[in-house]
Amino acid sequence: MCMAIPSRILRIDGDSATVECFGVERVVSLMLMPEPVAIGDYVLIQSGSFAVETVESGAALAALDYLRQVLAEPDTANDVA
């Protein structure tokens, strides 16, 4: 549903970075980022594997805290075939 969850940068390797969110790590391209990023920054990922913007850490943590509440609810997941 149009969600893009802030992911934290763990490692940077040239134009790509390893990011983590809820224990899931993925490698993303930094080539669409408008400014340099650093380890520990939060970024939004779009089109599967492109970081597109930095999220201020307070806003990122608020979003992640909200999602922790959502994921803790037993009927959150959905599977309609």
């Binding site: 549903m1 979003a63 959502v70 959150t76």
Partner: peptide, 24 residues
């Protein structure tokens, strides 16, 4: 097609002020 969208993703907006909910 199996839609794995978290259907309850907006549920935790309950209890917030309208401004806070819109920002979130």
């Amino acid at each position: 097609i199996r839609n794995q969208r978290p259907v309850g993703a907006t549920a935790a907006l309950a209890g917030r002020s309208p401004g806070e909910a819109v920002r979130l």
